[in-house]
């Protein structure tokens, strides 16, 4: 199967994709974009979260063919060149990154949260990130990072 899709603003083509592949597999193994992570491949961990036409989804649950003609934005597409997005910078500054395997998915999901809800309460942050498992941090510094990112986005 041949696929055409836009990823991070650029057109991409994948050839010879097997029909049972997920969008995640296509991004990682066919398009050279391994930033989105493959921790569970059952929609339980959120580490593969990407924007699909501006909506965050688990890319492991999207059949490759369903991405035909669609626009995808991954963790690799969050920064503006050398400048990290406020969410990315806040994760670094708050120590919210340890092994980092959950980070790409969390960044996309947190980015979307702040876009939709610029001043989230703690309860809203927790409910919004409940589908992103992290095994290293205990989430406290992730909370710090999201609060900091929201503050930074509000003043910028």
């Amino acid at each position: 199967m041949r696929l055409n899709l836009t990823v991070n603003g650029r057109p991409h083509q994948a050839d010879e994709a097997w029909e049972g592949e997920s969008l995640l597999h296509v991004l990682r193994e066919r398009l050279g974009l391994p930033g989105s992570k493959n921790a569970c491949e059952q929609g339980e961990c959120g580490s593969c979260t990407v924007y699909l036409d501006d909506v965050p989804v688990c890319s492991c649950m999207v059949a490759a063919g369903q991405a035909q003609g669609r626009a995808v934005r991954t963790v690799e597409g969050l920064a503006d060149g050398d400048r990290l997005d406020a969410v990315q910078q806040s994760f670094v500054d708050s120590g919210a990154v340890q092994c980092g395997f959950c980070t790409p998915g969390l960044l996309v999901q947190a980015h979307d949260l702040i876009e939709r809800n610029p001043e989230p309460t703690d309860a809203e942050i927790r409910e919004s990130l409940a589908g992103n498992l992290c095994r290293c941090t205990g989430y406290e510094k992730i909370m710090d990072a999201v609060r900091l990112a929201a503050q930074r986005k509000a003043v910028s």
């Binding site: 929609g43 339980e44 979260t49 989804v57 688990c58 999207v62 919004s128 589908g131």
Partner: peptide, 9 residues
């Protein structure tokens, strides 16, 4: 249902 990402799909 599951998580926000899953509820989006």
């Amino acid at each position: 249902v599951a998580s926000p990402q899953i509820r989006n799909r």
